[in-house]
Design a protein around this nucleic acid. Structure first.
Lengths: 196, 196
DNA sequence: ATGTCATATGACACACTTGTCATTTCGTTG
DNA sequence: CAACGAAATGACAAGTGTGTCATATGACAT
């Protein structure tokens, strides 16, 4: 995380650096990001950067946690979820909120997206199991008798997770199309595609 | 594709370069691959490389088509598929064969895998719609009344494709586990997870 | 043996990277 | 005002990488 010197900076300067970093991390994958580029767009001398951060990982960690903080604020503010809702309903609601966020801060969501398809040592270590909450929901619904007993919750979570992530690449489609696609996917996972 | 000079090389030397390239492309993503590294492991001088290939894309294209050729030979040799089989059955069979191939040539399949998660301009252009055949099968089964009429074949193909690809990262599990997981996934897509 | 021509070769020019460090600048405090 | 210390700065060393090119080599034809 940033050195003390960074925290002592003016809000303006901090913001300038943050924005430059976001721009870089949202267009290049981690291994391709150049600190040179960041300092150039931030308009600070190269030496200063190393006064503020140790290295690329350091600034990424900063940007990442900053974004996560913001996202969680937004997601939790919309938390008027019906406690009896099943996993499918909750999922749909979360994605809807998450979509709004992506629309409001496209660069931020682009960073998350790039992270998903990155397999640098460092990024892999970072990728948290945000899937955990989802798994718990699946397990709960299984006990409520809403989901077939032979289903492996981990597998379901993985499927949902991997597909929804991929779906975000389609975000350009526009809200209606995007949400319809997600809806269709969830329906397939719920009911299958074969005729009964 | 390779220059004439490369084709004139001895089989041995060609092989040596091919192997070095495979090694490099199977451990680093495209943008990170270094020609320096390739020539070093192949034991040829840097200048020679440029006598044989134009650049990184050039040699990748060569390696890629070479591997594809080999894979298709294997996949087609196992083509004793029942013409009445539904898409689920065919899928399972193809994956089984494909798994064998991955086991036999782990570096090759690693390259395919890396391609899937690569978003370099060049690689994206290359990624063929091998999904086409699958889509046709889904459409056929829809007309045969095996698949619900409201299902969008493209979406199904995408789902299958993205799950299965991701699943290949689990290939270390061993054949039984791997095939069981694939089987479970296909079953979910077919029948869903919700209780009826 | 001489000439020709395709190929082999590694030094070279250039462009990029990262992290360091001696120096300068500046604000605060005595 | 002086002096101290923290922060700013850009030149620097050392490491990547790419693609080119003049020259060396060697096989074959005359």
């Amino acid at each position: 995380m940033p050195k003390e010197t960074f925290n002592n900076l003016s809000k303006d300067k901090k913001q300038k650096i943050f924005i430059a970093a976001v721009q870089e991390f949202s267009t290049r994958r981690f291994s391709e990001v150049s600190i040179n580029q960041i300092v150039k767009t931030a308009g600070i001398p190269r030496g200063s950067f190393y006064q503020y951060f140790n290295d690329k990982e350091d600034i990424f960690l900063y940007v990442f946690t900053e974004i996560l903080k913001e996202k969680q604020e937004i997601l939790h503010s919309t938390e008027d979820v019906n406690p009896d809702a099943d996993v499918f309903e909750v999922l749909m609601q979360t994605i809807r909120a998450s979509y709004q966020w992506s629309r409001a801060k496209p660069e931020y969501s682009q960073i998350s997206l790039l992270m998903e398809i990155d397999n640098s040592e460092f990024i892999i270590r970072l990728r948290t199991a945000s899937a955990n909450e989802l798994r718990k929901m699946v397990e709960r619904d299984k006990q409520r008798g809403l989901i077939k007993p032979e289903i492996d919750p981990d597998l379901v979570v993985e499927m949902i997770y991997s597909f929804i992530i991929k779906e975000y690449f389609w975000i350009g489609l526009g809200e209606d199309m995007f949400l319809k696609r997600i809806n269709d996917i969830i329906k397939i996972i719920k009911e299958g595609i074969a005729c009964v």
